[in-house]
Amino acid sequence: MSTLLTRTVNGLRDAGRTAVVPFLTAGYPDLQTSRRLLAAAAAAGCRLVEIGVPFSDPVADGPAIQLASRRALDAGMTLAGAVDLAGHAARELGLVPVLMGYLNPVLAYGPERFGAACAGAGVAGVIVPDLPLEEAAGLRALLLEHGVSLVDLVAPTTGPGRLAAYGRAATGFLYLVSTTGVTGAGVGQDIAGYAARVRTHCALPLYVGFGIGDAASAVRVAADADGVIIGSALQRLVAGAATPDAAVAAVGGFLQEVTAAVAGVHRDSG
């Protein structure tokens, strides 16, 4: 099925561009700075952006995103607020936003209402890290009715049978978790072999995330992926910045460095 996300990622792939996708926790360090960080991402040439919906108990996340989630919740961020922020990114900045958040806030908000809100805001995809294949069918169908892709994650532990099933169910891109671990822990070994194994089961563009901490590892991953997703490294830059201005400058500079480095990568797979 053709969704906004499918069209966007296929367009990038056809243009020979490896996507650099920043992950930014909504409302971290505060809503105003969140907007400026998204603008910095757009200015750095990013097209897709992941907006993290904070949750009280993020079991798939390491310390950097845990901290960002906690702070964002303390500052009053909600699922509705994250959808609004995504709408701002789409409308005002021309970005294609993908939301990433745990299941419970979606259940509390109401899945049907959530699907409609996503469509209204221009959200292209939704990533739910605690919703594996067997549990995902209901939300996947509901979101697709609204033209929104549910983006699936696969892991190094995912065997051939499950990869094939994901390949049949997924739309947009497939999210390859680079390593067995939480976010921010470092990129796994042999991304080339891993990506090749997944490609035998799935024709979708492959985006690799979890643990891409600098331009060098982004370049390494970009050789075998259609997109690289950078999360913890950005939240660490925000955490380490003394002021919102410094955070925006640090994130913008980092993304410019990564997009430039990745643009120079020649890729012959995919």
Binding site: P111, P132, E134, A137, G138, L142, A155
Partner: peptide, 23 residues
């Protein structure tokens, strides 16, 4: 909620399931 399965292994009248990272 209608998006959740009510059948399958490890279900207790709609409760239960396997809501964990794919890993």
């Amino acid at each position: 909620p209608s998006i959740l399965r009510t059948d399958g292994p490890g279900r207790f009248g709609g409760y239960g399931g396997q809501f964990v990272p794919e890993t």
